[in-house]
Simulated scan of single mutants.
Amino acid sequence: MVAVLLFACLACSAAELDLQGSRLVVSGMLDGSAIKTFTEHLGKGTVRTVVFEDSFGGTAEAAGAYADAIRASGVDTEIRGQCMAACAYAFLAGKAHRFGYGLQVNGVLLPVAARPTAAELAVRWRGEEAHKTLAEFTPIAAAAPIQATETRAAGTPRDSARDNWQPEHGVLFTASPTLFGRIYNAFYCDGTQGRDFSKCERLPDADPFKLGVLTP
């Protein structure tokens, strides 16, 4: 089922916004370039659902800004297609957060520093816990430009901690349409699989609804 998720973006465009009645569709990388316009749309009070469509990452700072705006406005969020890394945390900020309907395969990949235990899975993405998890990455992302310069000057390897904020490293939840309804699966991707997500480790008993990743 995850074979269709092999595409990952190397040169994606910046975030694009498309207001469709009470739905605001966000696609592309969450790099912060559209956050002002995004916040203005939500501030008008006419948007009820933010739809993330094929957003393959972005920066931790942008993820935090989108999440704050979504949380403050109390709108719902929805995924249509793929929502990875930065997009995933913005998605979790919705009052209700769901996968969209249709024939497409939907997937959300949440970055993690290490393989979560069963106990961590049970609470990690519920309410404020999702915000705390994002905060683990924000200082790393903010310091990355300085550290990268120092690394190049010293000729030393990159700090592996910063590599955790990558689209291919995290817990991936997918929903695939079938004739009998949707099939939900969860996988841990440690990054060694590159962009071939079919090689990720399947996680048993990781229902996205029970874990709070999706709401009914």
Rank of each mutant, 00 (worst) to 15 (best):
A67S: 12
A153P: 01
K132Q: 14
R71V: 07
S160W: 04
R126K: 15
R162F: 12
T49C: 07
V171W: 01
D207A: 02
R182V: 09
P204F: 02
R98W: 05
F91Y: 14
L30I: 07
S22T: 14
C189S: 04
T156Y: 09
S13C: 13
E136P: 12
A69S: 08
M1V: 03
G191E: 05
E129V: 10
D159H: 05
T215N: 09
T133F: 00
I35N: 04
F137Y: 15
Q193D: 11
D68I: 09
Q193E: 15
I70C: 08
M29A: 08
V50Y: 07
L17C: 09
V112K: 04
T192R: 13
Q20P: 03
G107I: 00
E136W: 02
Q193S: 13
L17R: 13
A3L: 15
E78R: 05
D68G: 11
C200E: 00
H41G: 07
Q193T: 08
K36F: 14
F38N: 05
A144I: 12
E53A: 14
A93S: 12
K95F: 09
A72N: 02
G194N: 11
A86K: 01
P111V: 12
A90Q: 06
D68Q: 14
S55L: 08
C87V: 11
V123H: 04
L92F: 00
A114P: 08
G102C: 13
L172M: 13
E53L: 11
V47E: 08
C200T: 00
K36E: 10
E128R: 10
M29D: 00
T39G: 06
N164E: 13
S33Q: 04
L214P: 05
G45Y: 05
L17V: 05
R23D: 06
E168A: 03
S176Q: 11
V50T: 01
F197K: 02
A175D: 03
A153R: 09
Y184I: 10
V112W: 00
T138W: 01
A175F: 08
G100Y: 09
K36Q: 11
T46P: 07
R202W: 07
R98G: 06
T39I: 12
H97R: 14
S33F: 09
A60F: 01
L19F: 13
F187W: 15
N164C: 10
P208F: 00
P116C: 15
P145H: 10
A113M: 12
T46N: 13
A161G: 07
E16D: 14
R162L: 13
C12F: 02
C12I: 06
